[in-house]
Amino acid sequence: MSNHANFSFTLLDGTTFDLGSGVAQVVLVVNTASRCGFARQFDALQKLHDRYHAQGFTVLGVSSQSFGKQEVDMACDIAAAIKNKCSSVTFPITQLTAVRGKAIHPFYAWAATQVSIWGRPKWNFHKYLIGKNGECITWFSSATDPLAPKVIEAVEAALGQD
């Protein structure tokens, strides 16, 4: 098992998002669910994305029903539900993706090997920070605001690395 991410996700529009080594961007991977109480974080995630996108940073929202089935089923409905929570989400959002269980996406299976048991998603809006070289730098719990100082500091530090 590599210590570098190299994974693909299918986005709501059917295109592919490649994550990991060779992509040379910093990515905050967040498992999202539009019907979750933490869905209020979409606005903060968008602000974080906007603030650092020109420097090579993106948020990747990973739509999931892995916790409480708090996401709708269809890609077009997911997009509409997110738009209802946040007027303008421009960062990429995936089609439904399992973040745990038998059908777990390979990224989440890999990420679980990169962190302690405490660093694995326990609910929606868990965040993994992936560096330019595809390494898992750190993680943040669902309750952590995307604009919290510790998140900003980690993103800025990751962007500063070459």
Rank of each mutant, 00 (worst) to 15 (best):
M1E: 10
N3A: 12
N3H: 13
N3F: 14
N3Y: 11
N3G: 14
H4N: 11
N6F: 10
S8P: 01
T10W: 01
L11T: 05
L11M: 10
D13M: 03
D13W: 03
G14V: 04
T15W: 04
L19G: 03
L19N: 00
G20D: 07
S21Y: 10
S21N: 11
V23M: 05
Q25I: 09
Q25S: 13
V26I: 11
V27S: 06
V27R: 00
L28E: 01
V29C: 07
V29L: 13
N31C: 11
N31L: 12
T32I: 15
T32L: 12
S34W: 00
R35D: 06
C36D: 15
G37M: 09
F38C: 02
F38I: 03
F42A: 14
F42C: 11
D43Q: 09
D43I: 07
L45Q: 07
K47R: 15
H49L: 11
R51K: 15
A54I: 05
G56W: 04
G56C: 11
G56E: 08
F57C: 11
F57L: 13
T58Y: 01
T58E: 09
S63P: 02
S66E: 06
S66G: 12
Q70L: 09
Q70P: 05
E71P: 00
V72T: 14
V72S: 02
M74Q: 08
A75I: 01
A75K: 04
I78P: 01
A81Y: 07
A81F: 10
A81C: 04
K83C: 07
K83S: 15
K85D: 08
C86A: 13
S87D: 15
S87P: 06
S87A: 15
V89I: 11
T90R: 15
I93C: 10
T97R: 00
T97G: 03
A98S: 09
A98N: 03
A98H: 00
R100Y: 03
G101H: 00
G101I: 03
A103L: 07
I104C: 05
H105A: 04
P106G: 09
F107Q: 03
Y108D: 00
A109H: 04
A111V: 12
V115N: 07
I117D: 14
R120C: 12
P121M: 13
P121A: 14
W123G: 11
N124Y: 12
N124V: 06
F125H: 04
H126L: 04
K127T: 14
K127S: 12
Y128V: 13
Y128R: 04
Y128I: 11
L129Q: 06
I130Y: 03
I130P: 03
G131H: 09
K132M: 08
K132W: 10
G134W: 12
E135C: 08
S141Q: 14
A143G: 11
A143D: 10
T144F: 06
P146W: 13
P146N: 08
L147H: 03
L147R: 05
A148D: 12
A148V: 07
P149H: 02
P149E: 12
V151L: 07
V151C: 10
V151G: 07
E153H: 06
E153R: 06
E153P: 01
V155M: 06
A157S: 15
A158M: 08
L159Q: 10
Q161I: 06
Q161W: 05
